[in-house]
């Protein structure tokens, strides 16, 4: 790790100002992912702007029934917030299935969104990686791909985004508030992260001096149910092979609203619009007959899957997990 200059941000504007004009600058909040990468040599900022003490650590219930989540709210505090537990169980469960209790007590909302891939080659300086060093090649292609993408990948990068929280937020149509040098803007969460294309080193649409200040969740209509189902290689404390965040509202036996996002399958939280299209308006009554439409929806989404040698199992796994999640939601007590 190279030496760096540590600056405690005086206020939100000051944080952005402090980060502007520097090539190698990074915001430091919980530290969990950034410090990890600095130790590995994957990140080597010359200046760290500590935003952990800024007043961005509140969860506010909005008048319209939505929720505003400050960027430095700890993952554990967010999961424990009464409004999240009551109104957004998909988010609470996604948060609680990420990392461990003592990591969630450090990790923040903004940091969770900006965590980088867990691709083993990305984290290992001794192997080529286009995301870490553009133009050097992708070692994962032809290598160990268990944690890698089956959707939306490119010939340059097959990494996945590791967050659980972001997958839930993608299904909740969250909006991300960003403060940059030219002021405040709002980005839909599903547009925050990029697909790798030929610029896999860019995870998101943000520039280095952009500071995420909050995430807003719109309210969910009465009768909406949601859940998060994470499938991983051990029972706890592991990244998702596949995860499904599902939000469903069925009225009079018909799907009125459905939002599905997948984790562990793509470079970004993957909003399953094709599956949603199949489901929206379909009759669902909690009977075994639903299975067929759920399966068709999952297959519609996964028709475009392009698994790698070594992760073909993720296609049936994602399909079955989507079906299982929808089955669970549709049969929940009404």
């Amino acid at each position: 790790m190279i030496p760096f200059d540590y600056r405690l941000a005086p206020d939100v504007d000051g944080a952005v100002a402090a980060a502007t004009g520097w090539g190698g600058v990074a915001f430091l909040a919980g530290g969990t992912n950034l410090v990890d990468h600095m130790k590995l040599g994957v990140a080597a900022p010359e200046v760290l702007v500590d935003i952990s003490r800024l007043p961005l650590d509140a969860v506010e219930e909005l008048p319209d029934g939505g929720l505003r989540i400050g960027a430095t709210v700890r993952n554990s505090d967010l999961a424990a917030h009464p409004a999240v537990r009551r109104d957004y169980p998909v988010l609470a469960r996604a948060l609680l299935s990420g990392a461990s209790g003592q990591v969630r007590n450090l990790a923040t909302t903004g940091g969770n969104l900006l965590q980088r891939t867990r691709c083993a080659y990305f984290q290992d300086l001794s192997t080529p990686c286009n995301k870490r060093e553009p133009g050097t090649g992708c070692s994962a292609i032809g290598g160990y791909t268990r944690q890698h993408a089956i959707l939306g990948a490119s010939a340059h990068c097959v990494a996945t985004h590791p967050s659980d929280m972001a997958v839930a937020m993608a299904a909740l149509d969250a909006q991300v508030t960003v403060l940059g040098t030219s002021g405040r803007r709002v980005i839909p969460l599903v547009e925050l992260h990029r697909l790798p294309g030929d610029e896999p080193h860019r995870d998101t649409v943000l520039s280095p001096s952009d500071l995420i200040t909050a995430v807003e969740l719109p309210p969910l209509p009465e009768g909406t149910r949601s859940l998060y189902r994470k499938v991983r290689d051990r029972a706890s404390y592991a990244f998702a092979l596949v995860s499904v965040a599902a939000v469903l509202r069925v009225e009079d036996g018909v799907v009125r609203d459905v939002r599905i996002a997948l984790g562990g399958v793509a470079h970004k939280p993957w909003r399953a619009r094709r599956a949603e299209d199949v489901l929206r308006g379909s009759p669902v009554d909690g009977s075994p007959a639903d299975e067929e439409v759920f399966r068709r929806a999952a297959e519609a989404e996964l028709a475009g899957a392009a698994p790698l040698a070594g992760n073909g199992f993720k296609v049936p796994l994602a399909r079955n997990t989507v079906v299982s999640a929808l089955r669970g939601l549709s049969r929940e007590e009404r």
Partner: peptide
Amino acid sequence: RRVITCLTF
């Protein structure tokens, strides 16, 4: 609160 100490400065 319980925290890990290896990933924080």
